[in-house]
Nucleic acid binder design. Sequence first.
DNA 1: CGTGAAAGTTAGAACTA
DNA 2: TAGTTCTAACTTTCACG
Lengths: 169, 169
Amino acid sequence: MEALDRRIVQLLAGDGRMSYTDLGRSTGLSTSAVHQRVRRLEERGVIRGYRAVVDYEEARIPVTALISITPFDPAAPDDVPDRLRHIPAIDSCFSVAGEESYVLKVRVSGPGELEDLLAAVRAAANVTTRTTVVLSTPWEDRSPLSSAPEETAELAPTAADVTSTDRVP
Amino acid sequence: MEALDRRIVQLLAGDGRMSYTDLGRSTGLSTSAVHQRVRRLEERGVIRGYRAVVDYEEARIPVTALISITPFDPAAPDDVPDRLRHIPAIDSCFSVAGEESYVLKVRVSGPGELEDLLAAVRAAANVTTRTTVVLSTPWEDRSPLSSAPEETAELAPTAADVTSTDRVP
DNA sequence: CGTGAAAGTTAGAACTA
DNA sequence: TAGTTCTAACTTTCACG
């Protein structure tokens, strides 16, 4: 991805409603040139959509928790995400390396709902759970694009890249 | 928060660039009535902003990890978030109940950068770390406001580069 | 909360390097 | 292929009923 595209993505990650006029001003391009690039970024899937950032305390869903999941029967086929997808309180689902198989981030309105949610998760996916309640959130979903590498990294992998086995773009 | 406001927040959480015209159509209000409500929601802080949803694999930041943090000196004043805030790769920071004090969600371009990041975190905040690498992300940042969840287009799983280890302290 | 008009934005066609 | 300029259609914004 080119520097100009990266800049556009970074700007839209920071303010998803920025107008093409302002994007053009910030990048030195014309309005339609930016528009064209944004459309290509959307088509390529680099930009997947736009969302309002909601303050869940204000929206009266004040409890966040992280739930680590271990399948009860390690021999059974692992379709945990499919079995959990219908539960709206599950904000994110990560498949992870480690003792446990998945980590869920959930949001509920209180301890009672958390209890119900845990029961629902265990029943739906036949798993055991380990729950970590979030006490406060200093920040969340900040856009980490400024740490992105330039295109040179592809041609010259570092020692650390080589020692790990799987594909690292 | 009123049902109409909740509906508006829900719609904007699903599509942050929806026009006021369409919001009005979907809620049965006029354009300006919706506009007025959205502005109030923004002022009250229920809607904190808008962001583009970025596919981090496409953007060449393909590695996600969860880092649990324990302060090295329990007697020292706890200003860990302030000490970490300047590191851009840290996407989210949660203060949590449990054995550990914080959980960070980070995004990096590869194992080498993860190694550097862990060193930076330990040095900046005087903490020990326990790292869980994310292998894939069945979904992320779904909006949990809905009782009738509009499933957004399926998120592309993020393949990461991990052999079998989970603890990288 | 709705109406309507001015100001601003977007989308796309035609053109250029 | 990627950029610019031009223009019609649409959206946002705001004073007023």
